[in-house]
């Protein structure tokens, strides 16, 4: 048991209290599920003087819909999303992604907001939130602001949150009728980071949204692919042209989990299969949500 450094552990009960603590203690770390933060603290990967645990803030664990917007509180875990009928109805591809996150014991603690705050390139919540055009709701010293997820990821493990700010939720405009899909390539089920993640939304009128994770420094949308697909069925685009667009969009690395070539090949395959699944789901068919297409 090596405990290298100590810190003050605070548990605010309200957002104003939390903001006051973050203002008083520069460099404080916010703690929610802790599945990333606890090992970082223990390994001294981060050494804050203060840890602000937000678990006592009322309402932060809610998933609700109001005025055409789905809101996911910062304490909502991946298990909560999987169990939520509201999430299943409105954002099934995000729920599908939640099933692929680690294992039951981790999903019971790991939060969706924490996943995008850690902002690792392979984060499973990234691609689905990009295709659902979610926004990150933030409160801070300067008041409240809403950051589109498209502008949220700045680099590996870096996001747009400023000093003293706290994420108060994720909002998603209800997408209406759609078919979605999240495909994840990993070595085994249960606690593995994505080697490639692909999220697709098929909207009525042959309108598609496509996002990738783990094949670039941040999760990203692929507008050139979306433009090529627009107006046709998922199988109408010339496969070779689509593959070329995938190659242009991604910038995979070689690492212990997969080679660059493998990631490239699988990105192409997974895009094709996710498109087919999303389009079929839009029409009421296709594989049931949760059944991986690879």
């Amino acid at each position: 048991m090596t405990i290298a450094h100590d810190f003050a552990y605070l548990r605010p009960a309200t957002v104003p209290d939390a903001l006051a603590m973050l203002a008083d203690h520069r460099g404080a770390m916010v703690l929610a599920g802790g599945t990333d933060v606890v090992p970082w603290l223990r390994d001294d990967a981060i050494t804050p003087e203060t840890v602000v645990d937000i678990k006592d803030i009322a309402g932060f664990d809610a998933i609700d819909v109001a005025d055409g917007v789905l809101r996911i509180g910062p304490l909502v875990t991946f298990s909560d999303l999987i169990a939520s009928p509201v999430a299943a109805e409105h954002v099934p591809a995000l729920v599908e992604a939640s099933h692929t996150v680690a294992s039951v014991g981790v999903r019971n603690r790991a939060t969706v907001v924490g996943n995008i705050c850690s902002a690792v390139p392979s984060c499973d919540a990234g691609p689905p939130l990009l295709v659902y055009e979610a926004a990150v709701e933030v409160a801070g010293p300067g008041g409240e602001r809403s950051i589109p997820v498209l502008e949220w990821f700045l680099g590996p493990r870096t996001q747009a949150l400023a000093e003293g700010e706290l994420v108060t939720g994720i909002t998603i405009p209800l997408p209406g009728a759609h078919g979605g899909c999240y495909a994840k390539l990993s070595r085994y089920r249960g606690e593995d980071l994505a080697q490639v993640g692909v999220a697709v939304l098929a909207l009525p009128g042959n309108d598609y949204r496509v996002a990738f994770g783990a094949v670039g420094p941040v999760p990203f949308r692929a507008p050139a692919i979306e433009e090529r697909l627009a107006g046709g069925g998922p199988g109408d685009a010339d496969p070779a042209a689509l593959d070329a667009l995938v190659d242009e969009a991604i910038s995979p690395i070689d690492d212990v989990r997969a080679s660059k070539e493998y990631r490239t090949h699988m990105s192409r395959v997974m895009l094709r299969r996710s498109l087919a699944a999303a389009a079929a789901r839009l029409d009421g068919g296709g594989p049931p949500y949760g059944e991986q297409v690879i």
Partner: peptide, 27 residues
Amino acid sequence: CEQGECGSCSVIMDGELVCSCLVMAAD
């Protein structure tokens, strides 16, 4: 592993399965 990867530290906390290596004791 102390990383949430192996499940050897599994306990039930307030009715939920958790990896106890990922839960801060203070919490």
